[in-house]
Nucleic acid binder design. Structure first.
Lengths: 189, 189
DNA sequence: GGCATCATGTAACATGTTACATGATTTT
DNA sequence: AAAATCATGTAACATGTTACATGATGCC
């Protein structure tokens, strides 16, 4: 019944109470490579969860500033445990860079090499970010979470390796030798 | 200005005119692992693109049934080429199975092993689908598209390998030996 | 004083899924 | 004759992003 965002929130609150702001920070650093969320989702979702009795907010005043910390309730924990036991949906991947490469048949070799270089650089930046998370923030990760982080590292390394391989293959061929399908609209034989 | 869905449509139409139904089939088999689209997006988007003069629809009558084939226009090709030259957005990944694993700290070893087995099976099914596309439909793929398919194959193989590794590691340990963070809410040291 | 960060939220917009409705044609 | 596939579409809903608004606190 709840959105995935709701379950991520509940999942994070299992460890300790957090504010909406905290949740966003945690999502950005620890789950961002396989799940992201924006303030526009988090704050309204916290209100909804509170209305349903799955979390409980406490207003804390630090001087004049208010900070609302949400804690998971027993009902919330039960809802989370139930979700955890359900089968998972498939993965969803959206990769605009790969899409452009996929449709890049009309580009010349140099343009393709340029695309590959940018793709590689973007993934290398992603990889660096995951590494940073793993090194600078050991406290956020329990053992499983660290394994998931390693999954992310391996994933990006694979993608970067693919980019390098493709670059080599493309660079090795003569500049204008590019295949154009002679009869793209033929149906079958 | 256009949505990614619009560009995917234009990209597919570069080769030859297609109906909305055809476009959905093509997306399902050739780009589904890094970009998907539903009828609910495709049909309205075709109408919008036609209104903008980027595609042109022709009604064909096969007996009593009508089929509208859309062809890309010069303006459409220009818009597509322009998009191709722009820098790409980052990748977006959503993986519910991984999310559950990430938050699975409270589960016992057997439950985790079960999650892993299901995760692996799902990815193996995905991999099989990509293989099928590559073998059964050689005509859809130009050279670059085949490379992208290989990227997908490698990606799923990596994920499956990770599942196997995790499974071995988990299976090797005594059943109840699981770390519970003694003081999860501590800030810093 | 100025900048970064902490902190909370909303409204408009964009995107995308699902279920439903309808019916023809082709294959088994 | 039944089942699969071809074919088109919409409406309701769910999800998610972006830009904006507001202001406190802590650090250099």
């Amino acid at each position: 019944m709840l959105s995935n965002t709701a379950y991520v929130i509940l999942g994070l609150l299992q460890k300790c109470p957090l504010s909406g702001y905290d949740i966003k920070s945690h999502v950005d650093i620890s789950t961002s490579f396989f799940f992201s969320a924006s303030y526009g989702q988090i704050y309204p979702e916290l209100k909804r969860l509170e209305k349903k009795g799955l979390v409980e907010g406490t207003e804390l005043a630090t001087g004049r500033r208010t900070r609302t910390e949400y804690a998971i309730t027993a009902a919330g924990q039960a809802a989370f445990d139930d979700w955890l036991a359900q089968p998972s949906a498939g993965i969803e991947l959206r990769d605009e860079g790969l899409l452009k490469f996929f449709f890049g048949g009309g580009l010349d070799r140099d343009a393709l090499l340029d695309k590959l270089a940018k793709l590689r650089a973007a993934r290398a930046a992603d990889l660096a970010r995951v590494h940073e998370v793993g090194e600078d923030l050991p406290e956020i990760a329990d053992e499983l979470q660290r394994e998931v982080l390693d999954y992310g590292i391996g994933l990006y390394e694979y993608v970067i390796g693919w980019c390098d391989q493709m670059t080599k293959r493309l660079a090795a061929r003569p500049e204008t030798d590019f295949p154009v399908d002679p009869n793209p609209c033929a149906k079958g034989d």
